[in-house]
């Protein structure tokens, strides 16, 4: 096997082997208890707490020369922290990186699940700021741990129902809690609830790392993941009245881009790789020209694979 070139001042993947073993043991237990938060000896990383150190430690424990890594933040490969984390792994592991969802063996993400369905064999690593779905109900870790131990989730349903009574809707739009394998209530991290259904029965392995809170959890492939809801108020996801302004997709999560100071706005795919792929295949949104004028996208003659 070819050993990729990595910074010789650090072990491959940055973490020392003992730390990797510790993280790996936690990962295997996490898979065996879907949705349960395994405490782990989270290390101080050279990137700030809250900036993805949990996901980074998981990726560092997983990654090998045969991997191809994709890093996204807000669904996009070019957001600053995604760029920073990708550069970190290029330096400490030297492995190949990609922006194409289908080419990646490991996808580290913050706040989104890619639009393109993930396949068996791929691993999605989530960066988790707050792993505890019950924390807003109960600030004490000692208490929430007991609530999980005894599956005392009534308070969570009450909270969601209070929203319905007040607003007519559950007012949680991201980190929308899910029940995993019929047992543990889990925070899907701040992905928009739009992405929740993708977690259910996903063929890919989903791993979650909270560095500051020192927790790892997992959803094995083909595992039931249900968003908490009520018979009279079933779970729904966000929808938009118009398709993506760039690629005309009507099945993706859209970000709002303010185009002027007179209320002008357009809605574009949050998953930049998905959007580019569609445009490369000839899909044209209504405001592609506007976007070009705003230098939000560039026009490349004939190119098909430009980073």
């Amino acid at each position: 096997m070819n050993t990729p070139h990595h910074d010789p001042d650090y072990n491959f993947g940055y973490l020392d082997e003992q730390t990797k073993r510790m993280v790996r043991r936690a990962l295997l237990k996490a898979i065996a208890i879907p949705g349960y938060q395994v405490p782990f000896g989270s290390r101080e990383m050279p990137l700030a707490r809250g900036w993805g150190t949990g996901g980074i430690q998981i990726t560092a424990a997983l990654i090998g020369p045969a991997d191809t890594l994709k890093v996204i933040d807000q669904g996009a490969d070019d957001t600053t922290n995604a760029v920073s984390i990708r550069r970190f792994f290029e330096r400490v592991s030297g492995v190949a990186t990609t922006e194409l969802t289908e080419d990646a063996t490991i996808i580290q993400t913050r706040h989104r699940i890619p639009e393109k369905p993930l396949e068996a064999g791929q691993i999605l690593v989530y960066q988790v700021p707050q792993p505890e779905p019950l924390r807003k109900l109960e600030p004490s870790e000692a208490e929430t741990r007991k609530m999980h131990a005894w599956a005392e989730y009534g308070g969570m349903y009450v909270r969601l129902y209070e929203d319905i009574a007040r607003y007519g809707h559950v007012a949680t739009t991201y980190s929308y809690p899910v029940l995993v394998n019929g047992r543990y209530v889990m925070s899907p991290t701040p992905i928009p609830k739009f992405d929740n259904p993708k977690m259910d029965d996903m063929p890919a392995l989903q791993l979650f790392g909270a560095g500051r809170e020192k927790r790892i959890y997992a959803i094995p492939p083909y595992t039931s993941v249900k968003s908490l809801d009520f018979e009279d108020h079933p779970f729904t996801v966000q929808s938009w009245t118009e398709p993506c302004a760039l690629c005309a997709a009507n099945d993706s999560y859209l970000d709002e881009v303010i185009t002027d100071d007179r209320g002008g706005r357009m809605f574009v795919c949050s998953d930049s790789s998905y959007c580019e792929d569609r445009r490369a295949k000839g899909h044209v949104g209504k405001e592609l020209a506007t976007a070009e004028a705003l230098a939000y996208v560039g026009h490349v003659e004939g190119g098909s694979d430009v980073a």
């Binding site: 900036w51 933040d73 807000q74 669904g75 957001t79 600053t80 922290n81 913050r110 706040h111 989104r112 809707h169 007012a171 739009t173 991201y174 701040p190 992905i191 928009p192 609830k193 739009f194 966000q238 938009w240 999560y253 859209l254 970000d255 709002e256 949050s270």
Partner: peptide, 13 residues
């Protein structure tokens, strides 16, 4: 860090 995806969810709601 950017939080615009979640913010968009809040706006929509």
């Amino acid at each position: 860090l950017p939080h615009y995806v979640d913010f968009q969810g809040e706006l929509e709601l």
